[in-house]
């Protein structure tokens, strides 16, 4: 597996690699190298099946991560290619010409994360959400709890007492390093 990473490294800069399992290698590459690498993998290696493709929101880093999982079924090994992209202007090159199912993945990521893949056929067509106006809901800063509260709420008459508060009040818990 490591030799294979070296083989990749010889062509494209590998930022980091992590042998997560004997059958699963993870590598990170720069966005500029993503499409060339994926194209090379698809046409020149056994890793031509795209099992899975999705995004992770690293909001604190100001980045999205695109994760492509490719599998070489003959060798029974998978390669996870991770690419960080700018969260402020999230655009990535489409891979729909390499793998037809990428159309749906890219359509979904546009809808759920707001990441656009110019040239991908169904960009902007609703997949799961009709008439959604809020920020893309899979972004970390979309507050599902608040949304659920507003959209569904609790049935009337529900009240909850926090056990810690009840004990603190009943027994007069205080603090003496601070005035209250």
């Amino acid at each position: 597996m490591n030799e294979f990473v070296q083989e990749i490294q010889a062509r494209f800069e590998v930022l980091w690699s992590n042998p997560q399992r004997p059958d699963l290698m993870q590598i990170g590459v720069r966005q500029v190298n993503a499409l060339p690498l994926l194209t090379w993998l698809k046409s020149n290696t056994g890793y031509f099946i795209l099992n899975h493709f999705s995004a992770v929101d690293w909001i604190e880093d100001g980045e999205f991560q695109l994760t492509y999982l490719l599998t070489d079924y003959a060798a029974r090994r998978s390669l996870m290619v991770c690419v960080r992209i700018d969260r402020a202007a999230p655009t990535a090159e489409s891979v729909h010409h390499l793998w037809p199912e990428a159309v749906t993945y890219e359509q979904e990521m546009f809808e759920m994360f707001g990441i656009s893949f110019p040239g991908s056929p169904r960009q902007g067509v609703d997949l799961l959400l009709e008439g959604w106006e809020d920020i893309p809901p899979m972004r970390r800063d979309f507050d599902t709890a608040a949304f659920a509260e507003e959209a569904f709420g609790f049935r009337p008459g529900r009240t909850h007492t926090n056990p810690r508060d009840r004990v603190a009040i009943a027994f007069g818990q205080k603090g003496f390093l601070h005035d209250h």
């Binding site: 399992r21 993870q26 099992n51």
Partner: peptide
Amino acid sequence: TGQTYVRAEASRGEMGYYTV
């Protein structure tokens, strides 16, 4: 911090979880 992809054979085919 970590990420993985775990798969299994469901009746419909390969099911996988990508977990971070």
